[in-house]
Computed example of a mutant assay.
Amino acid sequence: MENVIAYSPFLMKGVTVTIALSVCSILLAVALGLLGAAGKLSERLWVQRIAGIYITIVRGIPDLVVMLLLYFGGQVLLNQIGALTGLWTYFELNQFVAGVIAIGFIFGAYMSETFRGAYMSIPVGMIEAGVSVGMTRITLFRRVIWPQLVRYALPGFTNNWLTLMKTTALVSVIGLEDIVYNGFAAGRATREPFTFMLIALFVYLVLTILSDTGLRALERRYTRGVQRGV
């Protein structure tokens, strides 16, 4: 217990990094997901194909492989570009930024399918009614499409968010000091790895419970007054 107390600031730093990484990654994933869904729903065939290739490739490659490729391969690519253009001599990709890009890129593909499915669940008559009363595209999206999109996407979004939080543990392999990395380092230093991994487990469990509770409350708010099927 003394070791846990002594390393508590170190562990809290890891918790902060994990939360920040999760939030930044989900924001990027949502942005890419909306773009991917718009691409899949586009009337232009080439746009559909680009979005389809992105979704298919990402969902077919292990998350760890994507992260390692982006972190190590991305640095090599950027340094080669710098050497060719003369714009910079050496570029080192920040571990936090690499983690956000990798996780956001991965879950952007899953979010694309979540948003596409949610959009297709919106009754066509609601959109047609908005058009018939003269709504502009922005007004139609803000007043009709977005509220319905959120309602239908929330269950899938919740699952993706909970999975994304657990996926952040992969950043420990590239040296980012998240709760897993710091917990393992503290366990190795004190020769109590089991104790500190239990703490990391507890942290993820608490974050999952809080997230699930909050998102389910949000889902109830958006589905208020909506009759559910039995």
Rank of each mutant, 00 (worst) to 15 (best):
L170S: 04
G117M: 05
A185V: 14
R137D: 05
E128F: 01
N159K: 12
I101H: 01
L64E: 14
L68C: 10
N160E: 09
L68K: 13
I61A: 12
N182F: 10
P155I: 06
E92H: 13
A129Y: 02
W88L: 06
I127M: 09
I55T: 14
F91A: 07
P147N: 10
G73E: 08
E113R: 10
T163G: 09
L198G: 08
F96A: 09
Y110N: 03
W88F: 01
F107M: 00
A102K: 02
N160K: 02
T136Q: 05
L170P: 02
M197T: 11
V173M: 12
L87V: 13
V131C: 13
M120Q: 15
I101W: 00
I55E: 11
Y181N: 07
V131Y: 10
G104T: 00
T168C: 06
R59T: 13
Y152H: 08
A186V: 12
G175N: 04
A186L: 07
L170V: 09
V76P: 05
T56I: 14
T136A: 07
K166G: 10
F141E: 02
I57S: 12
A109C: 12
A51H: 11
I53H: 09
I127R: 13
E92R: 12
V76M: 15
Y54T: 08
T136W: 01
M135E: 05
G125W: 06
M197F: 14
V133G: 04
L78I: 12
A129R: 00
L198R: 11
Y90N: 15
L69S: 11
L162H: 10
F105A: 06
P123Q: 02
Y119C: 12
L70D: 06
G125V: 02
G175P: 04
L70F: 08
F184A: 15
I122D: 05
L149V: 01
E92S: 08
L87R: 13
G99P: 08
L64M: 10
T139R: 10
G108N: 04
Y119K: 14
Y71P: 03
R191E: 14
I179T: 07
V133Q: 01
G104I: 00
I179Y: 04
T136V: 01
Y90S: 15
L70V: 11
L140M: 00
F105K: 02
I122P: 11
F107L: 01
V133L: 00
E128L: 08
V131E: 15
A186P: 07
Q80S: 13
T136H: 00
